[in-house]
């Protein structure tokens, strides 16, 4: 898992880590059951505070994205979709609202806004297929 952070951006470092881990999983670059590097390892690699890495891991665990087993290792959760549908929608709604507000302010048509989301979904799906192809070839 290769993470990249920009400490001087206005986005808190723990959020940058969370978003990248989620992206890795959504695009299939990381698969359920796969182990993540230790908090201390990530902190040393990125030259950041281990407390910050721990916070990101804890949040991801709370969201059901990661699982920590007794003994300390952290894995990509086997069943990250265990949440209720209503809960998933509740979590996604702020992002949908932001897209709607920003898009409208930029005077984009509703269809253009929706197309944009479709394009991002397709890009993720393609990345996912590429990774499964690579996996198959590796076996």
């Amino acid at each position: 898992m290769l993470l990249h952070i920009n400490p001087s951006s206005g986005v808190p470092i723990y959020l940058q880590i969370e978003n990248q881990v989620k992206h890795y999983i959504a695009s299939g670059a990381m698969t359920p059951g796969e182990a993540l590097p230790s908090v201390r390892q990530v902190a040393a690699d990125l030259r950041i505070n281990p407390n910050t890495v721990a916070r990101a891991y804890q949040n991801l665990e709370r969201d059901g994205v990661l699982q920590t087993v007794p003994g300390g290792r952290t894995y990509v959760a086997e069943n990250p979709t265990g949440l209720l549908k209503s809960e998933k929608i509740r979590r996604l709604r702020p992002y949908a609202r932001q897209i709607a507000v920003e898009g409208t302010q930029l005077r984009l048509d509703p269809q253009e806004i929706i197309d944009l989301v479709w394009q991002e979904l397709n890009a993720l799906e393609e990345a996912h297929e590429r990774h499964s192809d690579l996996d198959r070839k590796a076996r």
Binding site: A44, R47, P50
Partner: peptide, 14 residues
């Protein structure tokens, strides 16, 4: 500086 920050994260904090 980079080495200092690495040591801080790896050995000092915690």
């Amino acid at each position: 500086v980079d080495e200092f920050l690495r040591i801080l994260g790896q050995d000092v904090v915690g």
